[in-house]
Design a binder for these strands. Structure first.
Length: 258
DNA sequence: ATGGTAGGGGGCCTA
């Protein structure tokens, strides 16, 4: 089962890219981030016309996540549990058909500028995600936490790590919070298959970052042990970053033999 | 030290 995460940076602006990607790459399951649409205005036909079930969790203007699957989606949760006052649409969960696999699609806060309230929100959100992950892990089922983490885990995950030392994506506290998810027993799927440096999933639109390959790896799939045991492949699909009207992110994939 | 680009929405904010 092929599972992808793709920050599309606006569903309406990315209709053509998303359709082409679904036709070319045919994921079984995908999570999308930054749909930047309320649920009522989401152009569902792009996805449903290709035979996918779809659940969205959007809001006006920014953020917004979705999950799509060729198999039915059950037990959908919208919003990261643990804070009734948080109205940002950054989390969606669903169980995939009768596979027993639960997928969590996430758009972790950027956190810049630092220090400040946005960075405080990022760290609080990561602590809340850790709590949610711990709760889900008690069921000892295959779990996939996929999305835009806005975290550069290691210097090898940036073309120019020194340029990010003061950034919310790479500060020690950010990396420590990501590491705590791994300490819980979650595995960075790409690194299980590809330890080498130089693999990126995001290139800024500005300053020729893409042609200069000035990228960072911030889109991740973390797996419970039960999912990691089924992992047969993981890779980053860089092709869509070179298409017309691209997202600034590109899809990241895993293949699970469930 | 700055500004470089993109998307959404209807006025600057987010990234």
């Amino acid at each position: 089962m092929k599972i992808a995460t793709f920050n599309i940076n606006g569903i309406k602006a990315r209709a053509e890219v998303l359709g082409r990607w679904l036709d070319d790459s045919a994921p079984d399951v995908a999570v999308l981030q930054e749909i930047k649409s309320v649920d009522e205005n989401f152009p569902r036909e792009i996805i449903e016309s290709r035979g996918y079930h779809l659940e969205t969790h959007g809001q006006k203007g920014f953020n917004g996540v979705a999950v799509l699957s060729k198999r039915p989606l059950h037990d959908v949760v919208r919003g990261l549990p643990g804070d009734e006052d948080d109205d940002q649409a950054r989390w969606i969960e669903a169980t995939i058909g009768d596979t027993g696999l639960r997928i969590c699609g996430l758009y972790l806060p950027n956190g810049n500028p630092t220090p400040g309230p946005k960075y405080d929100y990022k760290l609080a959100w990561m602590a809340r995600m850790e709590t949610r992950a711990r709760a889900l892990m008690t069921a000892e089922q295959p779990l996939v936490f996929a999305g835009d983490y806005n975290v550069i885990p290691q210097p090898a995950d940036a073309a120019r790590p020194q340029a990010w030392t003061e950034d919310a994506l790479f500060l020690p506290q950010t990396r420590a919070a990501f590491r705590r998810l791994e300490v819980l027993g979650l595995y960075d799927a790409l690194r299980l298959r590809h330890p080498e440096p130089g693999i990126y999933s995001f290139w800024d639109y500005q300053a020729g970052a893409w042609p200069r390959n000035d990228g960072i790896r911030i889109d991740h799939l973390l797996l419970s042990a039960q999912a990691a045991d089924c992992l047969t492949d993981a890779w980053v699909e860089t092709g869509p970053r070179a298409w017309d009207k691209p997202s600034d992110h590109t899809p990241v994939w895993i293949d699970l033999d469930l």
